[in-house]
């Protein structure tokens, strides 16, 4: 432990090389850990390829991906996945044309209505009820919708928390603090079971939308705190400079403060969004058929009783893959944003 290296910029390849070439007295210790690690991985691989029965996964891939979406309509969620993939690809590896970069955000926003349209149908497509939505499709839909709604609400809350009007400030602070104090499952429980009690008789909100509303409530409070941190990092003289240029309050907020605050808060926000994606699995406790929920129903099929180990490991890797992609994209975005700073 006494060799502390504050310089962490060396990449992992260099580190590996260093490790292999170094003659440190810790090499023995390293070696033992290395052996343990290899044996662990070996055991895991033998289990995965020899001792386990992946039929519960392979024969139900459709269910994991689309839930009970009608089979002849499954091209729709597939199309949506592809559009999401391609826009991710363009964001990360796409050309550096200015107009493309500027409009990419609209592309991202557009994927959500596109997804809803493709899943829901109407306007030329066969309507599909929300009860048929499920699996990974539902997980991604809940995540993307909640992100889309919670970002503007979070920004608004952050601005309100800094508002000069006493009451607005107090109300927003109260909301943010309470939301950050309660566990997510309680908020989701509220969304699923108690929201109907607060609505007028006869007004019904669909179950999926109630989940999205609950997630939005929850995440926007966290995002608001992230953005508030970002806002605090902006020096006051920028506001004064903007004022002297004749910009009014709204213009200052929209053109000066929010973009900078977003840039500062981006890592924190993406962390919360990755958390949001993971936490959609909580909906299975409340009986929604998202990825984990569908898996639990598959496990009830008499054919697959007791094969949960395969299912859990499969789910863990699917979630891990998606979260890693999200983390990767956000990292790339951060890099791009710092490059485009322009000063």
């Amino acid at each position: 432990m006494n060799n502390i290296n504050p310089n962490l910029n060396t990449n992992s390849f260099q580190k590996l090389k260093k490790f292999l070439l170094s003659k440190s007295k810790y090499n023995f210790c390293n070696f033992i850990f290395f052996v343990i690690l290899i044996s662990l991985i070996f055991n895991l691989l033998t289990w995965i390829f020899i001792n386990s029965n992946w039929k519960v996964v392979t024969s139900n891939l459709n269910l994991y991906a689309f839930g009970s979406f009608p089979i002849d309509q499954q091209w729709r969620p597939t199309l949506w996945f592809f559009s999401l993939l391609s826009i991710t690809f363009i964001t990360v590896y796409g050309p550096k044309w200015n107009w493309l970069r500027k409009n990419l955000i609209f592309g991202w926003i557009g994927t959500v209505p596109l997804g809803i349209y493709l899943l829901n149908g109407g306007l030329g497509l066969n309507p599909v009820m929300t009860r048929h939505w499920g699996g990974l499709t539902l997980t991604i839909l809940i995540t993307s919708c909640s992100i889309l709604f919670s970002l503007p609400i979070g920004i608004l809350l952050a601005l309100c928390r800094r508002s000069s009007i006493f009451l607005i400030q107090k109300l927003c602070s109260f909301y943010i603090d309470v939301m950050r104090a309660v566990p997510l499952i309680a908020v989701l429980f509220f969304g699923q079971l108690l929201i109907p009690l607060f609505l007028p008789v006869g007004l019904e909100i669909d179950r999926v939308w109630r989940a999205i509303i609950a997630f939005t409530f929850f995440v926007s409070a966290y995002i608001a705190e992230d953005i508030r941190g970002g806002l605090q990092s902006i020096p006051n003289n920028q506001i004064e400079a903007a004022k002297s240029l004749g910009l009014n309050k709204y213009q200052i907020n929209i053109f000066i403060l929010i973009p900078q605050a977003l840039r500062v808060a981006l890592p924190a926000i993406t962390n919360h969004l990755i958390g949001l994606f993971q936490n959609t699995s909580l909906m299975s406790i409340l009986g929604l058929m998202e990825l984990l929920g569908v898996s639990r129903s598959i496990l009830a099929n008499p054919e697959y009783i007791g094969q949960y180990i395969e299912v859990y490991i499969w789910l863990a890797s699917v979630y891990w893959l998606f979260c890693t992609i999200m983390a990767f994209v956000s990292k790339k975005l951060e890099q791009k944003m710092t490059i485009n700073k322009g000063y």
Binding site: I274, Q278, N279, S281, L282, S284, I285, L292, Y308, I309, Y312, I313, L315, A316, Y319, W320, C323, T324, A327
Partner: peptide, 16 residues
């Protein structure tokens, strides 16, 4: 650890 949901981790810890 950070990129997999806690719920699934818990189930793995317990059942697996």
């Amino acid at each position: 650890i950070r990129q997999t949901p806690l719920l699934i981790q818990l189930m793995c810890w317990y059942f697996v």
